[in-house]
Write a protein that binds this DNA or RNA. Sequence first.
DNA 1: CTACCGATTGACT
DNA 2: GTCAATCGGTAGA
Length: 206
Amino acid sequence: MSLLRGKTTMAVLASDFYERDTRQVAQELLGKLLVRRTREGVTAGRIVEAEAYLHERDSACHAARGRTPSNAAMFGPAGRAYVYPIHSQYCFNTVTEQRGRPCAVLIRAVEPLEGIALMQQRRGRTWLTELARGPARLCQAFAIDRQLDHWDLTRGRRLWIVDGIVDSAEWTIGNSARIGVTSAKYLPLRYYVVGSPYVSGPRQME
DNA sequence: CTACCGATTGACT
DNA sequence: GTCAATCGGTAGA
């Protein structure tokens, strides 16, 4: 508790933040603080990369082929977590919109700010850029697994997201196709902080 | 029940 | 740049 001076419980994002256009939420999540508290301690970091998955005309969205036991969180209230496994790893999403619209924002990368030793321990890596760059690495560093599927992110417990921590220093939001998807691969639904070394994926052109 | 596959990562050429 | 490991979820026989 040094850099953030106990601000990790202030200004927890409420459900009305998430109950909006998914692309808007994805862009506005950049710069917000992701906070995780376990018995081991607190880890927190600034979100620098996110992708939108839409309820319409988006075959890459897990909800595109209907509701299943595994993707049910996407159909639930906005402001919940949707955590799913892939290749023996996990990815973390925030559920958005609703009114019967299953969609979500995948958090792809975080700039570590607090609990760095804990992240290093969980990841088995030292370099800051290796701790939470990439959706599954992020889940390792923050100890996010399927137990947090459906978790309510608006209550400020265990796992939540905070506004107003990082000064509104100017940064540019980059936009590109999403990484790793094999369908709807040309939709420009990935957003990232241009120039951040904590962003995953191929080198950015500036 | 079996078969296929992926919103990944880490190691390697 | 390429590629294999790895396993839960899903569809299909």
